[in-house]
């Protein structure tokens, strides 16, 4: 997951830990509930904490205030509260990259980041990449080289590619593959994405 190597910071993995704990519990209950009556159908929930907290963060350059429950992910906040649905929910456990956003310029899977942990941070989503009508070079490259089909992985791919291009203005095909190796596409657009990145690299250098 080359593009997502910077997630660290401790807070990010909290939800993942809870989830994997839940998975283990589920596996146990599957075997047992053949014998026991009235077992829960799904994984045992962590006790839900009610109530909401106000958080402030920068979203696509704008100061944003939102009230969130402690269990809410950044992805849920974006999609369900702020109606910013460009960022996609697909695997909801950090395996597919469809929810990739930039946190202080680095890629994160927003499904693995608690919304509260965005407090005071600078979040950029796919909606915030273009400047007005002027597309980011990666977006322009994707358009010209048709690096999309159904388009559902595209926002995450664009965000990973944009972060890669910021670090490496002329990535090779292998570096590009490494950079998007945390993003899954089902239609099979990788070959076009490589071309799009070449194009983006040229555009970013001022080429035409």
């Amino acid at each position: 997951m080359g593009g997502h190597a910077d997630e660290g910071k401790g807070s990010v993995s909290r939800r993942g830990f809870l989830k994997s704990a839940g998975v283990a519990a589920a596996a146990t209950s599957l075997i047992d509930d053949a014998k026991k009556a009235m077992e829960p159908v799904g994984p045992a929930p962590a006790a839900a904490v009610r109530g909401e907290t106000e958080i402030r963060f920068k979203l696509n350059g704008k100061e944003t205030v939102a009230k969130v429950p402690p269990s809410m992910t950044l992805l849920e906040l974006l999609r369900e509260r702020l109606d910013m649905t460009g960022t996609k929910q697909v695997c909801d456990r950090g395996a597919c990259g469809a929810c990739t956003v930039h946190l202080d310029g680095r890629t994160v899977n927003s499904c693995l980041l608690l919304a509260m942990d965005a407090t005071g941070r600078d979040v950029t989503t796919v909606e915030g990449l273009a400047v007005g009508d002027r597309l980011h070079p990666v977006q322009q490259g994707f358009v010209e080289e048709d690096a999309m089909q159904c388009g559902f992985c595209t926002p995450g791919m664009v965000m990973s590619c944009a972060a890669l291009l910021a670090k490496n203005p002329a990535p090779t095909r292998a570096e590009c593959a490494e950079g998007i190796s945390g993003n899954i596409c089902r239609c099979g657009t990788y070959l076009n994405i490589f071309r799009a990145m070449d194009r983006a690299s040229a555009l970013a250098k001022g080429g035409k």
Binding site: R79, E80, D83, M84, T85, G86, T87, K88, Q89, T125, V126, E127, L129, A130, L135, Q139, F142, V143, D146, M148, G151, F152, T154, P155, V158
Partner: peptide, 17 residues
């Protein structure tokens, strides 16, 4: 619809709020 797809404006059934 390429621009709609690369800017996140394309709204899918999953995106309806």
């Amino acid at each position: 619809d390429a621009v709609a797809k690369v800017t996140g404006k394309a709204r899918y059934a999953y995106d309806m709020n």
